[in-house]
Simulated assay, not measured.
Amino acid sequence: MRTRTTLAAAGLLLTLTACGGDTDDKPSAPPSLTEEQRASARAAAGLPPEPSTTARYRFLEALNDIDRRIVDGKDGKDDKAVSRGLNQCRSIKNAAGDEDKQVALVQQTLSRFTIDTRLPDIATPETGGEILAAVHKNLCPDF
């Protein structure tokens, strides 16, 4: 036990002395990624490419056709809706070929878009299915 404590203390001491240094050092900026690197990272995360302006517009219009309250038209809500849609694309991709997972996507969609808590009057399987279809058609048709 004493040996472990001594080793732990020595390790901590080495770590602390390694952290010391010139306090005038400025943190380096994170490296910039190329568009190709961003696309590769998105694909690795199971996300589709960033939607075109047209695809984004069509997706938001599809949500508004379902119920205008889903997006709500406030600043930043469009971005949030698109972000939620892109995350739902990952779920669509992960559920491919698994019928049980595909059925669960409807409820997950209602939760992801906070329909079940914000708009309980439209929190139905039909609404979830319509939102899921809008996501799939406009943001990730290849999934």
Rank of each mutant, 00 (worst) to 15 (best):
A9Y: 13
G76Q: 12
L105K: 03
A41W: 01
P120G: 11
F113M: 03
Q107S: 14
T127G: 04
F143V: 07
R84G: 05
I92M: 01
N87K: 01
T5W: 14
L7D: 12
A62N: 11
D142L: 04
D121M: 05
I92N: 01
A81M: 04
S91Y: 08
N138S: 04
D22E: 15
G128F: 03
K137N: 08
G20T: 15
G85Y: 01
K74A: 12
R68S: 12
T124M: 08
L105A: 09
I70K: 02
R68Y: 13
K137V: 07
A55L: 05
P141K: 03
P27H: 10
M1R: 09
G46N: 04
T17Y: 14
I66F: 14
P125Q: 11
T124G: 04
A96P: 02
S52P: 02
C89R: 00
G129F: 04
G21R: 08
I122Y: 02
A81F: 04
N138W: 03
G11P: 03
D142E: 15
T17H: 11
S91Q: 12
V71E: 14
P125S: 05
D121I: 03
A18K: 09
L119N: 01
G11R: 08
A134K: 00
L14P: 05
D24C: 05
T34W: 06
E99H: 13
T34N: 12
P49R: 09
T124N: 08
R2S: 10
S40P: 01
T114Y: 11
R68V: 12
G129P: 00
A104P: 04
A8P: 06
T114W: 10
S111N: 06
D75I: 10
A41V: 09
D65G: 10
T53M: 10
R118A: 12
T53A: 15
A45G: 00
E35G: 09
G128M: 03
D24Y: 03
L110R: 03
G46Q: 08
F143H: 03
L139V: 00
A133I: 02
A39M: 09
T114G: 04
P49N: 14
V106H: 06
T5Q: 14
R2D: 15
D98V: 11
T23E: 15
A133D: 10
F143M: 07
L63P: 07
G128W: 01
C89W: 00
E61H: 10
D100S: 09
K77D: 15
V82I: 12
I115A: 06
A104I: 07
D67Q: 12
N87S: 05
D121L: 07
A9G: 11
E61K: 10
I122F: 07
Q37V: 02
K77S: 15
A41H: 03
A8E: 15
L105R: 02
L14A: 15
V135Y: 02
L33T: 09
H136P: 00
G11K: 06
E36K: 06
I131Q: 00
I115H: 04
R42E: 07
K80V: 12
